[in-house]
């Protein structure tokens, strides 16, 4: 590399996953684990506290956006659906352009935006968000997928800022041991938090909402960003 080309000139100064503007929270996880239900719950619980919006990357077109609209958790102009070209994983990790476009559109439409939930399309355990797109990410798995899921690991389970194990109410029905899931998750997550929840029993997702509030408090909401030049 010639001396006048320093890598540092091209790479932004390290910021702790902070993009400025609203806090962007990624919600990822396998199909059917409850990502959309969690997004809806967070909208209901946090919608009165924060100026918020949702970007959805549903694997099949606008299914999730329609779900959110039907449930009237957010007005239409606060939901943007992204077409992922059959590759939901690519759209949140490898080429995040379409998602950045959606976030920018929501920001321009709602200048006071404080919180954007970016819901991934259903994928597998290797799916994770690029930190170029989100500030923090939540990975959602469910008990019905088997109590071995946390042990199998994968970037979502091991490295997400929050792991949510949903559908704890089904544990007795599918013979899943919640203690095993908790222990296995703790073993691979290096101290990062895990929440065991049942969105059916608690449609407000109170524990997850508390975690999101803490992220907003620690990392700052709209206009409070000081980490990016």
């Amino acid at each position: 590399m010639p001396p006048d080309h320093n890598v540092d000139d091209y790479v932004d100064a390290p910021a702790p996953h902070r993009h400025g503007g609203p806090l962007r929270v990624g919600l990822g996880g396998p199909v059917g684990s409850g990502k959309t239900a969690l997004a809806a719950a967070l909208c209901r619980t946090l919608g009165a506290e924060y100026d918020l919006a949702v970007v959805t990357n549903d694997i099949y077109t606008t299914e999730d956006a329609d779900f959110l609209r039907r449930n009237a958790v957010l007005p239409d102009d606060r939901i943007e659906a992204v077409q992922t070209g059959c590759c939901p994983h690519t759209a949140i990790r490898d080429d995040i352009t379409a998602n950045l476009d959606a976030v920018e559109l929501l920001e321009s439409r709602h200048p006071g935006l404080e919180l954007v939930l970016v819901e991934s399309g259903g994928d597998n355990l290797t799916a994770s968000f690029s930190y170029g797109l989100v500030d923090v990410q939540v990975f959602v798995v469910d008990v019905a997928g088997g109590d071995k899921v946390p042990r199998k690991g994968g970037p979502g389970v091991t490295a997400a800022d929050l792991l949510v194990v949903n559908k704890t109410d089904l544990a007795p029905l599918v013979g899943a041991d919640l203690g095993v899931m908790r222990r296995d998750a703790d073993a691979v997550r290096g101290g990062r938090p895990t929440l065991l929840v049942s969105l059916r029993e608690d449609p407000t997702a109170a524990a997850v909402a508390d975690w999101v509030r803490e992220q907003v408090r620690v990392r700052g909401a709209a206009g409070a960003d000081t980490t990016r030049a």
Partner: peptide
């Protein structure tokens, strides 16, 4: 095609 410019979401 891997240049992250959003091309993968368009089918032409």
């Amino acid at each position: 095609s891997r240049l992250p410019a959003g091309g993968h979401t368009h089918s032409g």
